[in-house]
Simulated scan of single mutants.
Amino acid sequence: MRVATFNILNGRVPTDQHVDLVGFREAIRRLDVDVLAMQEVDHNQHRSDHADLTAIAAEAMGAPEHRFVAALSGSPGATWIASTGEEQPDAAAYGIALVSRFPVRGWRVVRLAPVPVRIPMRFSGRRLPELVRDEPRVAVVADVESPDGEVTVVNTHLSFIDWWNGRQLRRLVADIADDTGPVLLMGDLNMGPERATRLTGMTSGVQLLTYPAAGPNQQIDHVLVRGSVRTHRGEAVALPVSDHRALAVDVELLQHPV
């Protein structure tokens, strides 16, 4: 099976920040993967024409299984609050999504707390640091029944704050510790491959530069693997939308652990 992780930037074109739903559909079709992990996904947001980006991706893939999980509910600049998972299905929200052409036997959600206080951050062009508030994060875990067997697939988007995203990643790995079969952990981890593999004890399925899309100089998007998994033919794909390249790889589930 072929899988990919893609931070979609709400379906925006980074050169002028407009949402391009046609370009978004084309991007998903061009990827042509069986399982897709997406981050920065809008749901019923004004800035993305009130579209359900998860449903659009599922339709473009021909995928019957899909799940959007909100990290934040409401709209940016207005009622932007942490999601509880109890919101109405048509509520405006922002988060992550997992889309699969293969059956999913079960889903679960792992909520990852933000830094509890405002923290100073330095931004390009600013002389002094600014106090910023971290966002709540979330992960979705799916038990996917692929043609080669069942595999646990995890999608997440971790904090941009270095000393905190490591805590979030360890929390997530602890949650899937009892999954004894093959595991794929995908997403925008906001860290490089050496740190991601060290914190998880997992193997990088593909090491390619993914950010920024126009001339990538770092890899913060990952497909990590554990157990009886082998990966082939990885690529970082520049697409019509987003400031990230999508990271795609072929995954083979083996009969015996590697």
Rank of each mutant, 00 (worst) to 15 (best):
L9Q: 15
G11P: 06
V13T: 14
H18R: 15
L21K: 09
V22H: 13
E26L: 07
I28W: 06
L31E: 12
D32A: 13
D34Y: 04
V35N: 04
A37Y: 08
A37G: 15
H43V: 03
Q45Y: 07
R47T: 02
R47V: 05
S48H: 10
H50P: 02
A51Q: 11
A51T: 08
L53W: 05
L53S: 08
T54S: 09
A60C: 06
M61V: 08
M61L: 12
G62L: 10
P64D: 03
E65R: 08
H66V: 01
H66D: 02
S73E: 14
P76V: 06
W80H: 03
T84R: 14
G85M: 12
P89G: 05
P89T: 13
D90N: 14
A92S: 15
A93D: 09
I96L: 13
L98S: 00
R101H: 10
F102A: 04
P103Y: 08
V104G: 01
V104L: 04
G106H: 15
W107T: 02
W107Y: 10
W107C: 00
W107S: 01
R108N: 06
R108V: 02
V110K: 01
P114E: 05
P120W: 10
S124K: 15
R126W: 08
R127V: 06
P129F: 12
L131M: 15
R137L: 01
V140A: 00
V140C: 02
A142N: 10
V144D: 01
P147N: 06
T152N: 03
V154F: 06
V154H: 04
N155P: 08
L158G: 04
D162E: 15
W164C: 01
N165V: 03
G166L: 08
R167A: 07
R167K: 14
D175S: 12
D175A: 13
A177M: 05
D178V: 03
T180Y: 06
T180W: 09
G181I: 08
M186I: 01
N190F: 03
G192A: 05
P193T: 13
R198V: 07
G201K: 11
G201D: 11
M202H: 12
M202K: 09
G205H: 06
Q207D: 15
Q207A: 11
T210D: 11
P212Q: 09
A213L: 13
A214K: 14
P216A: 09
Q218F: 00
Q218K: 15
D221W: 10
D221M: 10
V223C: 01
L224K: 14
V225Q: 05
R226Y: 14
R230N: 02
T231H: 09
G234T: 09
A236H: 14
A238T: 14
A238N: 13
L239C: 13
P240Q: 11
V241C: 04
H244T: 07
R245N: 05
L247T: 11
D250H: 14
V251R: 05
V251N: 07
Q255L: 11
P257R: 15
